[in-house]
Design a protein around this nucleic acid. Sequence first.
DNA 1: GCTAAATGTTGAT
DNA 2: TCAACCTTTAGCT
Length: 278
Amino acid sequence: MPEGPQVARYARLQRDVLLGKRVRVDSPNGRSDDVSDILDGLVLRGIEPIGKHLLYDFGKERYLHIHLGRFGNFHFGEMPLPEPRGTLRLRMYTRTHWFELRGAIAIEMFDDDRKAALVARIGPSPLDADADPQRAFAKISASESPIGLLLMDQSIVAGIGNIYRSEILFIHGVHPKNPGRSLDAKTWAAMWHDLVRVMKDGERIGRIVTTDPADRAKPKGAVRREDRFYVYRRTGLPCRHCGTAIETGLMATRNVFWCPHDQPEHARIRSSKAKRSR
DNA sequence: GCTAAATGTTGAT
DNA sequence: TCAACCTTTAGCT
């Protein structure tokens, strides 16, 4: 159930123990035999997150491309391997560590061309220190489409998903239906700054918490879901800033959440000062 | 036990 | 705009 930061976290954890190693690859339920037949026993040279995609470099134009979709995730641990359970699509393991993959929407081989095509169509990522937020703003500020849609477009900004979308718009007082064109450069700069902050936090701790910085340090389970977010899935609950009931709507089949008081509709240009507090 | 919903993308209409 | 694909879990009965 990942947005960009969780994907990047998986890449980091796997790099730590798999890189440079001869990796065993198998597909207990048989669905990815085509991939494991090619990769089993090869040396893993690199793992690169590209937005929400993962690319594993096994040399000689042999890249494993994984996209977790909405439901995919990895389980991992130290050897020995656990008994395969459920719909286990792919396992990667060494003498010391194992990773189990379930629910991914894409598990396939890429060559150099397909890798290049992927890299070319993914926009700048807030998790990438070299990313150019202006590249994204050029597209956003030229568009009549609602900002809530533009932020989900992976060719404009990489790694944002349905949670970060609603949360960042609340933090900056922008209604999701406002057109991209109505966003000023200053607000975008502040928004990018906060995207970097909350997404890096997500990468570090492995889950999404956009609210109180103190909550971000707490262990998993210590913070209720409704306390981890300003607006996401808080329909009808009071806004943590002003108390107004949070509203929800559909945007391209995905639920989006906002505070009708703090995020006025109609492209009103407002100060970029971030809101925080309950 | 069944149904709906959930942090996503692609390709056809 | 819609349907398809992937799996688990929450909330019902």
